[in-house]
Design a protein around this nucleic acid. Structure first.
Length: 1170
RNA sequence: GGGCGUGUAGCUCAGUUGGUUAGAGCGCGUCGCUGAUAACGACGAGGUCCCAGAUUCGAGUUCUGGCACGCCCA
């Protein structure tokens, strides 16, 4: 080693991780490490990652840390493993939440108010609003160490993105997959708008509504009626069907009073008879399925009078022609129950989602053009329009229940009525206005046509956890309904359909350019003018409302007519699902980018995205690119695109997906008398409020409750690595995870600090001895193990000591495990493996090698072996940890490579991931070492149980083993045991009859398949037999013969296992395969040595108490209490002085020195002046 | 009401194809170490594997039915 200043400097003992991380962040930024990590893989095979776009319209919270951490760790890992992993960021910018946020700002709510305010300025505000928390998002992303291309992010409102979405919608439109239909929504009639489910959820109140039982006379048996139940009498004029459950039993009963015959569910006959106070006599019964098809007279004649009794042709298999009536017959429906009502449910399909499905099914029975229409006697204002008695037209429907009931009663159709209490939604901003379910014209994508293909696609996806595939997601796909695409809102991707104002025929447009190329285009000047007036407007707005609505062109369908866009925008989930191609603006541009980045190898989001992004991506990709999707349907003008994608294979558009659990918070809560809550985030803080009683809470994070620490605070207190390691290493990622400050804090000593301490240990000794890794003259820029071999003192592992070979074996085994687990997207077990390695390194390798590092001879081969082993292990461990704790890893890398002064790669993140050297894995050595560690552990346990502290030397331990295979190896290492257990001698034996009892137990795993039902008998026979004798027989013959009730059975040594049981009366501890027995005899010599060691401890403590540097010399005097102590001092004077760097050791008090008490007398320590 | 998931030590969680002493970390207790030192280590106590039934020679693990909690959807 060179004589110059030591290449390594001792690292500080207690680092401030947050500060180190900030330095690394700066280093990464200034040196463009992320960009370099990509450049190094420019020509490598791709590992494709898709970023699910978050919305920057809200503050990032801890849950985003989890998704972003998981999204970071695998790309980092794959990059180190030699893949090119581009990470394009993305932002979700459209949708109702943005409008709501802007509305709040403006103090307005309804659509009407927005229109009054002006769509144009409203949209401008929306566009600005989406970037409100951009800075916080960028900061969080960076600070967490999530490497992603924020500068090159895709944005869903950008023109190129919108145009990609348009292209895909045109594709669907031309293939006949985009159609208009009805959607039943919660409708605020007074405000003229639909409410989102979230808004509806806010407005539920308990109210009393009528529950009526109405007679519907049968057409063919006028004396018989269906007893039909409804809780919304106002929907009766719009009645279409009556629903029964096909599997329930129904009864025909006679009302003894009126003589009427009624059908109702058998299970409800008694209940209704009692309620209505009538006698119901059962005439006959039948299953509901037999009632299906019976025709009845509707309760009101309005539609019958207006439409007659319309009918149409049914779809028939062999061209047969059968017609059927459209309305007023019994249908089968699974949702009918006997919990309440009559078992026959009134169906007004316009006013309920399940009712509408019934209608939809009926509709599909008929051939195109002959289908029943939807009966709806109510206008969007919630008032009757038609098909009701003259007097009711214009009546608000919720006021109609009473007159309708009265009318039915007068006509003798009302069987019974009552009130019932239930929760019903009201408008959250007009509390007196009840909402009604109401059909709205809406655009749909015919996803149901692709149900089987989506299921097939889904079945190929690598889901983590697997149950998502056939569980939540699979079930969701099974029950697929057509995608309701349109939204009657303002800030979203405009639906690119233009309608001929005269014929109603439509065209889809795939880009702004295509629109401009249309004949007779007008309206673009509206945008031009707005832009001229306000040059700051982003150009992307030209494809948004209201500007795009102004663009019209000449209709190709009718001379002189104009084509005008429909007014709707689309569901923003469609935006997100189009991201695989829209992020590139494909197919209008970036052909090669799209092709090389599709499909994704890996995506990840939390489970709430099952019906969100996971579905939208899968649905869109299945429809557009899936094999089996018929892309050559007539009218599809994108054949070139179709060709391009035809060779795609499932799964699309992502191959693997980690579905993360929800993130919960944990806090301590106390409530005052006046209901004021005190929220604490750490249990320890509760001690500061002794008068309050706190209860621990686990639940959702809530901004208003402030029941969680902001990520920024976590970073400042503990650092990003602490949070990351906590997230990666504490549970499988799909379990819901508790964001608890204490747990995050705990991950520091668990992993970060332990790694740091091991590194710090290395630097301390490396500085003392001047260890110089530059001796490896051929070292490559990543300091790969093989390249270190060029150092003169570097010996092959095979020549080094056992413990070196052991830790190198553990290292290489761990590398293999980590690679195997990470390739399977299993970060949890990868981290477990790394933790295990670090434990072995810190708690066994370093601990057992301290003497080697402290050895006086700085240049001894053994010491060099130790350095090279530890150095190499630290380097590789640093690389292993790099994807998980990128900051600490880079800090260590930079310090470990510092002696090379720039000749090595500047960042660990530019390195290759370690490779496992199979030749260095020695499984039998691992086993032996495990046994050795167990023996040491048992020895300590035996000592503890006898209250014999380790400082007191003992003469001997005896280790009894069940077989002798390991004995020779152990004997070669008994120095280790002697030192660890502080004993003079270790004795190994298999002949331990004196100390132990042998028991032979079955090896069930092997015996089970072999003898089956005889297992219990074998077990019993073995238990009853003399263990020692069996063992002797086994050792002599290699097998034993056992007499069972039904014959003999022969067992070899693999079939059975020998167990040891320590006999009473010995200081022993037993493990599975061995027993450690202590010789507890303490001779006076041993006693004195123990005293000497006690005194060394006391002196060392005192050294520290008087602030000695570790090289300071001291003078010591012991005011010994007994002859024994004095004798001990005399016997072990040399050892005591050596260990404590004492120049003198006297007996008796020392003047003007403050003594320390010890069990062997007062200890005086004084520094020797230099 | 339906679907999915979870239930294992005081707490937070692991537990591979069923195999007989059920593990880790934290916390707690005892102790050790004192040239990694405001760190570190060892040992110990602590379990009805939610309950009940079934399959099996054998169930924390498989099946059925409950219970509790969570999420999604009605």
């Amino acid at each position: 080693m060179p004589d110059t200043a030591a290449p390594f400097r001792a690292a500080p003992a207690s680092p401030k991780f947050p500060e180190l991380e900030e330095k690394i962040l700066e280093f990464w930024q200034q040196n463009e490490i992320y960009q370099k990590s990509l450049q190094r893989r420019a020509d490598a095979p791709p590992f494709v990652f898709f970023e699910g776009p978050p919305t920057a319209n809200g503050m990032p919270h801890p849950g985003h840390c989890l998704t972003r951490a998981i999204k970071d760790v695998f790309p980092r890992y794959k990059t180190m493993r030699g893949f090119r992993c581009e990470r394009k960021a993305g932002w979700d910018t459209h949708g109702l939440p943005v409008e709501v946020e802007v509305g709040k700002e403006l103090g307005i709510h309804s659509k009407e108010e927005i229109e009054q305010y002006g769509i144009e300025p409203f949209i401008h505000r929306c566009q600005q609003s989406v970037w409100r928390y951009m800075q916080q998002w960028q900061r969080l992303t960076e600070r967490l160490g999530f490497w992603v291309d924020l500068d090159d992010a895709y944005v869903t409102y950008h023109q190129s993105y919108v145009e990609s979405v348009w292209w895909s919608l045109k594709n669907l439109f031309q293939r006949g997959l985009l159609y208009q239909g009805h959607k039943i929504v919660w409708w605020w009639a007074q405000g003229g708008t639909a409410l989102s489910s979230g808004e509806v959820g806010q407005g539920y109140r308990e109210v009393a509504d009528p529950s009526v039982y109405v007679r519907f006379p049968l057409v063919d048996h006028p004396e018989r009626s269906l007893l039909v139940w409804t809780t919304t009498p106002w929907t009766l004029p719009s009645n279409m069907y009556a629903a029964v459950h096909p599997d329930l039993e129904y009864s025909l009963v006679r009302d003894s009073e009126s003589g009427q015959e009624l059908y109702l569910a058998s299970a409800l006959v008694d209940k209704l008879a009692e309620k209505a106070k009538v006698q119901l006599e059962t005439l006959q019964t039948c299953p509901g399925s037999e009632l299906v098809g019976l025709r009845y007279l509707p309760p009101f004649d309005g539609y019958r009078d207006a439409l007659g009794d319309p009918s149409g042709q049914l779809i028939q298999p062999e061209g047969k022609q059968t017609s059927a009536h459209h309305f007023w017959h019994i249908v089968a429906a699974d949702f009918v129950t006997t919990d309440s009502g009559s078992g026959i449910v009134h169906q007004a399909s316009a006013f309920g989602e399940v009712d509408y499905e019934v209608y939809d099914q009926q509709r599909r029975r008929f051939v195109e053009g002959q289908q029943p229409e939807l009966l709806c006697a109510v206008g969007p204002d919630g008032k009757f329009t038609e098909a009701v008695p003259e007097a009711w037209i214009g009546l608000w429907v919720k006021d109609a229940d009473k007159p309708i009931t009265r009318d039915l009663k007068e006509r003798g159709l009302l069987f019974f009525q009552e009130q019932y209490l239930h929760d019903y939604p009201f408008c959250w901003r007009a509390e007196q206005d009840p909402l009604i379910q109401y059909p709205r014209r809406s655009w749909f994508i015919r996803t149901t046509k692709f149900r089987d293909l989506m299921l097939k696609n889904n079945s190929q996806i690598g889901w983590q956890p697997e149950h998502i595939r056939d569980g939540r997601f699979g079930n969701f796909l099974e029950s697929n309904v057509d995608w309701a695409l349109s939204r009657e809102r303002f800030w979203g991707t405009p639906l690119p359909i233009w309608v001929c104002q005269e014929t109603g025929r439509m065209e889809a447009i795939e880009s702004y350019d295509e629109l401009l190329s249309k004949p007779g285009v007008t309206g673009t000047e509206v945008w031009d003018k707005a832009k001229a007036e306000n040059p700051d407007l982003v150009d992307d707005l030209r494809v948004h409302k209201p500007y795009i609505d102004e663009v019209t062109y000449a209709s190709p369908f009718a001379e002189g007519a104009r084509m005008r866009r429909v007014s709707e925008v689309i569901d923003c989930w469609y935006d997100s699902g189009a991201m695989p191609f829209a992020q590139w603006g494909w197919p209008h541009q970036n052909e090669s980018e799209f092709r090389s980045q599709f499909p994704a190898d890996f995506i990840s989001e939390a489970i709430d995205q099952t019906r969100g992004w996971f579905y939208s991506q899968l649905a869109i990709a299945t429809m557009l690119f899936g094999p089996g999707a018929d892309l050559s349907e007539p009218g599809c003008e994108s054949d070139a695109v179709a060709d391009l994608c035809r060779d795609q294979d499932y799964p699309l558009p992502f191959r693997n997906c980690i579905v993360l659990g929800l993130m919960l918070s944990q806090w301590w809560e106390s409530e005052d008398k006046d209901k004021k809550k005190t929220i604490l985030l750490e249990e320890s803080e509760t001690k500061e409020y002794p008068d309050k009683k706190f209860t621990k809470q686990i639940g959702k994070m809530s901004k208003s409750l402030r029941n969680y620490r902001s990520p920024e605070e976590i970073f400042d207190r503990y650092g990003a690595d602490a949070l990351r390691w906590y997230l990666f290493a504490n549970q499988a990622p799909w379990n819901s995870i508790i964001y608890a400050e204490q747990s995050i804090k705990d991950s520091i000593p668990e992993f970060l600090l332990r790694l740091w301490n091991t590194f710090s240990f290395f630097t301390i000794y490396a500085e003392i001895d001047g260890f110089d890794p530059r001796d490896a003259s051929q070292a490559d820029d990543q300091l790969k193990p093989a390249s270190l071999a060029s150092a003169p003192k570097y010996r092959p592992a095979s020549q080094r000591s056992e413990i070196d070979r052991w830790i190198l074996s553990e290292l290489n085994q761990t590398i293999a495990t980590v690679i195997e687990r990470m390739d399977a997207l299993d970060n949890y077990n990868a981290c477990q493996a790394i933790t295990g390695l670090l434990d072995g390194l810190s708690n066994w390798y370093v601990r057992r090698s301290r003497d080697r590092f402290w050895a006086a001879e700085a240049q001894s081969q053994d010491k060099h072996d130790a350095y090279w082993t530890l150095y190499e292990t630290l380097l590789e461990l640093t690389k292993l940890a790099a994807p998980f704790t990128p900051f600490l890893a880079d800090t260590l890398w930079r310090q470990l490579t510092e002696p090379f002064a720039g000749a090595t790669l500047p960042s660990v993140h530019l390195c290759d991931f370690p490779e496992s050297d199979r030749d260095r894995i020695d499984t039998s050595l691992s086993q032996s070492m495990r046994l050795l560690r167990e023996i040491a552990s048992l020895g300590r346990a035996a000592r503890a149980s006898e209250k014999l502290k380790v400082r007191l030397p003992l003469a001997e331990v005896t280790v009894i083993l069940t077989d002798d295979t390991q004995i020779a190896w152990l004997q070669n290492h008994d120095a280790l045991i002697r030192e660890e257990l502080n004993v003079k001698q270790v004795h190994y034996t298999t002949q331990g009859d004196q100390y132990v009892q042998y028991a032979v137990v079955p090896n069930f795993k092997r015996l089970g398949p072999k003898v089956g039902k005889q297992v219990p008998a074998v077990k019993k026979a073995l238990a009853q037999a003399d263990g020692n004798q069996l063992l002797a027989e086994l050792q002599a013959n290699g097998r034993v013969t056992l007499a069972l009730a039904d014959g003999e059975i022969e067992l070899d040594n693999e079939d059975i296992e020998v167990r040891l049981q320590a006999k009473d009366g010995w200081a022993a501890a037993q493990g599975v395969g061995c027993v450690v027995v202590l010789n507890t005899e303490v001779t006076p010599e041993l006693q004195r040595e123990g005293i000497a060691k006690d005194l060394i401890r006391a002196i060392q403590n005192q050294r520290k108490a008087i602030d000695c540097q570790y090289t300071d010399r001291i003078q010591v005097s012991i005011d010994a209490g007994s002859d024994e102590v004095r004798q001990a001092l005399q016997d072990h004077r040399e050892m005591i002085c050596d260990e404590t760097l004492a120049d003198s050791l006297d007996v008796g008090p020392m003047d003007s020195v403050q003594p320390a008490d010890s069990e062997h007398g007062q200890v005086f320590v004084a520094k020797v002046p230099v």
